[in-house]
């Protein structure tokens, strides 16, 4: 028993004992295999001829089967023009929407951790009441522009007296919860209204529509994650800057933000991955010019069944940029969330 015990005795705090290390490596290896095998299978499938995919499992190129680059040539040569445009679209949409979401969401999160908000319940109910009224009015045949102007005017008129009379209000946490609750409704339920909205604005099949939508969809997550990071940044630095007469914006921009960069990088990656991969909204908001890559992947399932070989190529070329990004940002992620997670 004694030697075995010693095997598991750790000598320092973080350096695991040899026994623990071996078990750890085994477990890590198993999970790494589980993670990598599907990716390996994609690579192998992309090198197979259709008949080799259909006939049964072949595992090793050159040994099991003769690899062919037909799928790669098809995607990169035959339909290159149809591939490169969605690819560029995806990159633009994902990056721009994520940066914007980070900008707006980050400042909102900062606001929610540094200021106290007291939205009056009465004002919210007035807003909702007027909204319902104006919708009814539009349904009854009122011009929507007129309805909008009247509603805004009445809202502004009523705001002061009503807020004075009814004092109950909500707090920061309620705002945050309201934001995250906007993500609960499944996309199926919102896609037609959003389609109509952009159609009326004449923005269908433009990158703008996709950028705006993804930004709005991602804002709640950015606010929630960034709130944690800002909360864990010590207030003393900001307070001393304020005593020196710096404006809130200067404090935010030159003191808080630099401290939160790691957290922002991590959040950026989460949000980017979402915008990179979104399918249903992209399907409806784009027809030809603004198509993105997930549409192309899904489209490989045609009337003759999925074309695994093309699909594998597309999935692989889609993840390569994100993997590179992940490798570059990995160090930031762990340190980034580190800051946020001190208090949770």
């Amino acid at each position: 028993m004694q030697p075995i015990r010693r095997l598991f005795q750790s000598r320092s705090l973080h350096k695991p004992s040899p026994g623990t290390a071996i078990i750890s490596y085994i477990l890590l290896g198993i999970w790494a295999f589980i993670v990598l095998f599907p990716l390996y299978w994609l690579v192998v499938t992309s090198l197979k001829l259709p008949i080799q995919v259909i006939e049964g499992p072949f595992y090793l190129p050159w040994i099991d089967f003769d690899p062919s680059t037909h799928a790669w040539t098809y995607i990169f040569v035959d339909v290159w023009n149809d591939t490169v445009r969605p690819y560029i679209n995806t990159i633009i949409v994902a990056i721009v929407s994520s940066v914007l979401a980070l900008l707006f969401g980050g400042s909102a999160a900062y606001g929610l951790t540094r200021f106290t908000y007291r939205p009056r319940l009465a004002a919210i109910f007035t807003f909702l009441g007027l909204l319902v009224l104006s919708i009814v009015a539009i349904n009854l045949g009122l011009d929507w522009r007129l309805a909008l102007v009247v509603a805004v005017a009445v809202f502004l008129l009523l705001l002061q007296p009503i807020s004075k009379r009814f004092q109950r209000s909500l707090g920061n946490n309620d705002i945050a919860f309201w934001l995250i609750s906007q993500r609960i409704l499944p996309p199926v339920a919102v896609v037609i209204p959003i389609y109509v909205l952009f159609q009326r604005m004449g923005l269908l099949d433009t990158l703008t529509a996709l950028i705006v939508t993804y930004m709005a969809v991602n804002l709640p997550i950015v606010v929630w994650l960034m709130r944690d990071y800002f909360q864990s940044i010590p207030l003393e630095l900001e307070e001393s800057a304020k005593v020196d007469g710096a404006s809130p914006y200067r404090v935010f921009w030159s003191i808080t933000l630099p401290l939160a960069v790691p957290g922002m990088v991590a959040t950026f990656l989460f949000v980017l991955v979402f915008a990179w991969n979104e399918y249903l909204l992209a399907l409806f908001l784009s027809t030809a010019d603004a198509q993105t890559m997930p549409l192309l992947v899904a489209a490989q399932n045609a009337t003759r069944g999925p074309q695994w070989w093309y699909m594998s190529v597309l999935i692989l070329i889609m993840i390569i940029p994100v993997i590179i990004l992940a490798i570059v940002l990995e160090r930031f992620i762990s340190r980034g969330l580190l800051v946020g997670a001190v208090k949770g």
């Binding site: 993670v35 599907p38 991955v273 399918y279």
Partner: peptide, 21 residues
């Protein structure tokens, strides 16, 4: 750590088809 992050990067539709294979 990097390897363990990979699955999150793939488009859900792509993952679904991969698992179907």
């Amino acid at each position: 750590r990097v390897v363990f992050l990979l699955p999150m990067m793939i488009t859900p539709v792509g993952i679904a088809y991969t698992f179907r294979m």
